[in-house]
């Protein structure tokens, strides 16, 4: 387990509990009541800490090294029926963007999402979840495949942004993202987008135009990361906390501003604290949303989707 700075009180309690169990084993003393008390305290501490996170801490939680990534959800939500499909049919197969078919309680769904690496080597291969244009084009190919066979689409968003590399620019990163947004607006099948971790800018929106756009509790979604915002607006890296507050990027703020449709709760202490439970919660939400969206005819669904995005923005006259 890795503990973030603000999780230190939890770590202390967990270590105490471990020590207690160890001593109990050695001395054969009955510590059941003390253990129960500590366990209860760990739960309340976790609850308390996670209920009161600042915006910046929420950003840190979204990047927690133990947090489950897209592939883990794709496997679990589909009860391990997920079959990964590769390639954009033009340039190559982007490892930062993954997708494929899977079944939720027997029903086929197309999953697409950014994938971060789970160890140093994989992080490099997956470019830290920053997709190239061919990643967005693979996503679009899979969207179109799903549409052709009338399968609903679920996207998992977890990216610090689209990859800002030389080849990405050569191959039209801007065009790739723009095309996805444009095409997603008109998809005839239900589209559910869930932000699992980081939702940074156009890189996130490139697979983020859906009938239901939801954020897990400890995630963020905005036009820029707080660090980059600090470097551009304040011209230094020290204002990331202020920037995180100012950007109103937490799930709660985003819902209040009607920029997302729902918040999906996480297990006590965050998704990383109980990964199987996080998987189940997400699965149940997908099932509920699919039922809701199935009831609307495709044309009406497209109209509602477009109207929703067209109502975003605040102006005065």
């Amino acid at each position: 387990m890795t503990y973030l700075e603000f999780e230190k009180p939890i770590q202390l309690l967990v270590e105490q509990l471990e020590q207690l169990n160890e001593t109990a084993e050695k001395t054969q003393v009955d510590v059941a009541s003390a253990v129960a008390e500590l366990e209860a305290k760990i739960i309340t501490t976790r609850k308390e800490i996670y209920a009161n996170l600042s915006a910046w801490q929420r950003v840190q939680a979204s990047r927690h090294p133990d947090r489950p990534y897209s592939l883990s959800y794709m496997d679990a939500v589909s009860d391990n029926t997920f079959i990964e499909l590769h390639g954009d049919r033009t340039v190559g197969d982007d490892k930062a963007m993954i997708g494929g078919f899977g079944q939720i309680d027997g029903r086929t769904v197309m999953f697409v999402g950014q994938q971060k690496g789970i160890n140093t080597k994989m992080r490099q291969i997956r470019r830290f979840g920053m997709a190239n244009p061919e990643g967005y084009r693979k996503a679009l190919r899979l969207f179109k495949l799903a549409e052709r066979f009338n399968k609903p689409i679920v996207t998992f968003i977890d990216t610090p942004g689209a990859y800002p590399g030389l080849e990405a620019e050569e191959r039209g990163q801007g065009e790739a993202i723009a095309r996805n947004i444009f095409e997603m607006a008109q998809l005839k099948v239900p589209v559910i987008c869930i932000i699992l971790g980081e939702g940074a800018s156009g890189g996130a929106l490139g697979i983020g135009v859906g009938d239901k756009v939801c954020m897990l509790e400890n995630t963020w979604y905005s036009v820029i990361s707080p660090e980059s915002c600090s470097s551009i607006l304040w011209r230094n890296w020290d204002n990331k906390e202020t920037a995180a507050e100012a950007l109103k990027l937490t799930a709660k703020d985003m819902l209040e501003n009607k920029l997302v449709d729902a918040i999906i709760p996480e297990p006590i202490g965050g998704a990383h604290n109980n990964i199987p439970e996080a998987h189940q919660i997400v699965k149940q939400h997908i099932i509920t949303y699919l039922k809701e969206l199935d009831a609307i005819n495709p044309e009406e669904r497209i109209n509602q989707r477009i109207d929703k995005f067209c109502n975003m923005g605040v102006v005065v006259e």
């Binding site: 723009a178 947004i181 444009f182 095409e183 607006a185 008109q186 800018s201 156009g202 929106l205 983020g208 135009v209 979604y221 905005s222 036009v223 820029i224 915002c229 551009i232 607006l233 100012a246 950007l247 109103k248 990027l249 985003m254 501003n257 920029l259 989707r305 477009i306 995005f309 067209c310 975003m312 923005g313 605040v314």
Partner: peptide, 26 residues
């Protein structure tokens, strides 16, 4: 690019304009 002082509102203008353009294409 996007106006940072309107944060996610700015981001969503990308979706808004592109969605509207899909109607022009249609």
């Amino acid at each position: 690019g996007a106006r940072m002082m309107e944060a996610a509102y700015s981001l969503m203008q990308m979706a808004k304009t592109s969605a509207k353009l899909s109607l022009m294409a249609k």
